[in-house]
Amino acid sequence: MKTVTLVRHGKSSWEYDVSDIERPLKSRGKNDAKLVANQYIKSNSTPKNIYTSPANRALSTCGIFVDVFRLSDNSYTIIGDLYDFGGENVIKFIKTLPDTVDNIMIFGHNHAFTSIVNIYGDKFIDNLPTSGLVKLNFDISNWKDLKKGTTELIIIPKELKK
């Protein structure tokens, strides 16, 4: 059994004149990420392997989760290929993971994450919103055999605020 938890970065700010990769989180993005991380940790174990896009907004979202999980700052790995908006590089990354790794969490971007959730999960979502989280389970032993799995969990920040 393999598990992938995808977390889209928090809401980013467009008020700074910076490149896309350097765009920071808005305060709403920080608050939503913390809300989702706290909800996730209530009923899920902390993933042993955490990977993030190098984009400031994804890296900052990852940092919020790491804080909520009470992990050290070096408990995640920055992967350049996760700065991907189509999903092909994310899928390629997942398929090349060592088979000794069973449970991963990835921080990244749309449209990649919505596409991956709809290709590999069994519940359709129209759009994974910022700070949204989806946990997918796969009945495989080897990452290279990645195929359709089951959607175990979807956490949408807006739904936590009701």
Score class of each variant (00 low, 15 high):
3 T>I: 12
4 V>P: 06
9 H>Y: 09
10 G>N: 03
10 G>D: 02
11 K>C: 04
16 Y>M: 14
16 Y>H: 14
23 R>Y: 11
24 P>A: 06
25 L>Y: 09
26 K>Y: 12
28 R>D: 10
31 N>S: 15
35 L>N: 09
37 A>C: 05
37 A>D: 05
37 A>Q: 04
40 Y>W: 09
42 K>L: 14
43 S>D: 15
45 S>I: 15
45 S>T: 14
46 T>P: 10
47 P>I: 02
50 I>H: 03
52 T>W: 11
58 A>K: 01
61 T>N: 08
63 G>S: 15
66 V>K: 07
68 V>Q: 07
69 F>H: 04
71 L>S: 08
71 L>G: 03
73 D>L: 15
75 S>V: 03
77 T>P: 13
78 I>E: 14
79 I>Q: 12
81 D>N: 14
81 D>W: 09
84 D>W: 11
84 D>A: 05
84 D>T: 06
88 E>L: 13
88 E>W: 08
89 N>T: 10
95 K>T: 11
96 T>I: 10
99 D>F: 04
100 T>S: 15
102 D>H: 10
104 I>D: 06
106 I>M: 09
109 H>C: 04
112 A>R: 03
113 F>R: 00
114 T>G: 01
116 I>F: 07
117 V>R: 02
118 N>V: 07
118 N>R: 07
119 I>N: 15
119 I>G: 12
121 G>P: 06
122 D>N: 15
125 I>G: 01
128 L>C: 03
130 T>D: 05
133 L>A: 00
135 K>I: 04
139 D>K: 09
142 N>I: 07
142 N>E: 13
144 K>V: 12
145 D>Q: 10
146 L>T: 05
149 G>D: 04
152 E>S: 14
152 E>D: 14
155 I>S: 01
155 I>Q: 04
157 P>H: 01
159 E>N: 15
